[in-house]
């Protein structure tokens, strides 16, 4: 029983980890906390659903969706974020992503209505614990591949340089604009992965990712907003904590479950603002 709870927690945690990683990616590259990350993931999930319902096999629809999400992320950076970068205050940047949040949410409602839908599970015949584990495995493989690209390739090298110091990267001849677009594309793709992984457990509806976003914030804060590894570790931790708290702490009912990540966020920010794996001051200079 405990084992199954643990597996479920890890499965959910993998979804949170992916969205948290998406948040960390956009933050590291452009210094923006993207409140719209969850909604972009939700949009991608609807696209995946649409593809599957129209007959595409699940395991084809998934990479197609991720690729489309990548393209959408690149477009967002080019059209919206790039225009913003010079001279916008921090509040404006965040509120812009909030504007995107509202816009994307309304758009999804317009196209697909607010009706609840079931999302097909990739492993329909397995017990839920095993399905969760498999989902976590898929996520792990993708994130692992991503990590390899970042650590070992020239492209990854350049991305890390831009994340560390964009101006010096520019002076070293790096096409920083392209790297940023790539970063947002990767973030959107990872976010899409999160949505698709979590969709079988949540119902598919326009606000499905709102709660997940809060969990992802908690995960990213816990791990350290500038640490990719932290985001993943944080996501798993939050997933497990949430599931266990829901089962074993009586007073944490369904509607108070959302308090778990919020308490985590506030506690971390007050006690150790850089999170477990992050590096010192997380405020923008």
């Amino acid at each position: 029983m405990f084992g199954q709870q643990l597996l479920e927690g890890l499965g959910a945690g993998a979804g949170y980890a992916a969205l948290a990683l998406a948040l960390v990616l956009t933050y590291r590259f452009t210094g923006i906390v993207n409140f719209a990350q969850g909604e972009l993931a939700m949009l991608a999930t609807y696209v995946a659903w649409q593809l599957v319902v129209s007959g595409m096999p699940y395991w084809v629809a998934l990479p197609v969706t991720v690729a489309l999400a990548f393209a959408a992320g690149v477009l967002t950076e080019r059209l919206v974020i790039r225009r913003l970068e010079s001279g916008a205050g921090e509040v404006t940047l965040v509120v812009t992503t909030i504007g995107l949040y509202v816009l994307v949410n309304a758009l999804a409602t317009l196209v697909w209505t607010a009706a609840l839908r079931a999302f097909p599970s990739p492993f329909p015949d397995s017990p839920p614990g095993l399905a969760a584990l498999a989902a976590a495995g898929v996520a792990g493989a993708v994130l692992g591949a991503l990590a390899l690209v970042v650590r070992r390739t020239g492209l990854g090298l350049v991305m890390r340089a831009v994340a560390a110091d964009a101006r010096s990267a520019r002076l070293s001849g790096v096409r920083v604009g392209r790297v940023l677009a790539l970063g947002w594309g990767a973030a959107a793709a990872v976010g899409a992965l999160s949505g698709v992984l979590l969709a079988p457990t949540l119902f598919l509806e326009p606000s499905m990712m709102t709660g997940v976003l809060v969990y992802a914030f908690a995960a990213a804060t816990l791990g350290g907003f500038d640490s990719a590894l932290g985001a993943v570790a944080g996501g798993l931790a939050v997933g497990v904590t949430e599931t266990l708290a829901g089962t074993y702490l009586g007073f944490v009912g369904a509607d108070l479950k959302i308090a778990v990540p919020l308490v985590i966020v506030v506690a971390v920010l007050l006690l150790r603002p850089q999170g477990l794996f992050g590096s010192a001051p997380v405020e923008r200079a």
């Binding site: 020239g154 090298l157 350049v158 890390r160 340089a161 560390a164 110091d165 101006r167 010096s168 990267a169 002076l171 070293s172 001849g173 790096v174 590096s279």
Partner: peptide, 23 residues
Amino acid sequence: TQEGGTFGPLTVEENLRVGARAR
């Protein structure tokens, strides 16, 4: 520049390899 501009989290070797990107 005056501020120097090294990529802190990257190793020395990686810093140098970034420099080669301008060629």
